[in-house]
Nucleic acid binder design. Sequence first.
DNA 1: CCTACCGATCGGTAGG
DNA 2: CCTACCGATCGGTAGG
Lengths: 200, 200
Amino acid sequence: MAHQPGTKRGRPGYDQHSMLVVAVEAFNEFGYDATSIGTLAARLGTSKAAIYHHFSSKEELLELALDEALTALEGVLGDEQADEGTASDRLALVVRGAVHVLVNKLPYVTLLLRVRGNSDVERNALERRKNFDRAVTQLLSEARAEGSIRSDLDPSVAERLLFGMINSIVEWYKPKSPEDAARLADDVIAVAFDGLRVPR
Amino acid sequence: MAHQPGTKRGRPGYDQHSMLVVAVEAFNEFGYDATSIGTLAARLGTSKAAIYHHFSSKEELLELALDEALTALEGVLGDEQADEGTASDRLALVVRGAVHVLVNKLPYVTLLLRVRGNSDVERNALERRKNFDRAVTQLLSEARAEGSIRSDLDPSVAERLLFGMINSIVEWYKPKSPEDAARLADDVIAVAFDGLRVPR
DNA sequence: CCTACCGATCGGTAGG
DNA sequence: CCTACCGATCGGTAGG
């Protein structure tokens, strides 16, 4: 910020972040490639040049949006590492944290999960996601060594199925109350750890 | 077919289906929108006009590919309805069948799962997916009424989490042997029904 | 921030 | 007369 907080100078237009919010919405609706800067300008009620005032390229919009999601997800791992509990407890903490990030950063995570690696920005984001998945796989291995996670299945397959379930939330979740998000995290943990079958 | 099977006339080029296979690969690699007919022609080693000989539009390529995935998935429901077992048994049959369709029709299902509804063809495909999901939700309700599925969670949330896990397979599965696909189906059923925790 | 544009490439089609 | 194309180019629109 180059000027005092709270003061407004120049036109009462968009700042970088409020423009990013609209852009990410459009990217999720039409797909990143299919969203032209022209379409975006129309949505914002500005010109294309107005967008290039805040961002140097279409890809910078994508990069900033992906970073928002990845920083939040990586933060969940930071919380976990500080914990003193068993691997199983820390795993539950990561699952709960990831569900909350998905819900709180829904549009950014949605965009992240659709990245395919078609550019350096996308490949970099995929690399950060891979590191996250590796850390969770490691946690699953530890929980398995503890005897709290079933041993008849490969930890990396388990990780993919677990986060396949978690990540799919972006496909259908409609933001409601914070209690709703906590309930969803409980449901995910219940299904992931104990399955759909009635608890025996 | 207008001529005898086995006979070849004209150039030994692509037929509609072999061209579709290459197109679907490209759509999954770059995204449907980001894949131009020109790029496709380059991959095929043909001209754009050669593609338009076999397909009336780019969208017809998408439509035929999506239909291949949807027909296979709908077939799984047909198998289930013929079964005489409990709802729980039929649900397991659908899960196993869906995993096999994902593996056997991997590129087509991958494409289907990335459809966002940006055209009539895409919206029609989403409608057929919704009908599939509705049928599975109904099956989960029946299994719950039977007492075989936990009752502390909404059947439609359960369906979304279950198929979120199943569908995520397209993000990482690399086709290997048929035994491998059967093993994957077993793993999915184990995690979905009994969870990651050690069986008590 | 706007208007006025650029080099290039898009999906699709012509005649042969 | 068929299937399977080619070289060239159309009117519009993309990101910048």
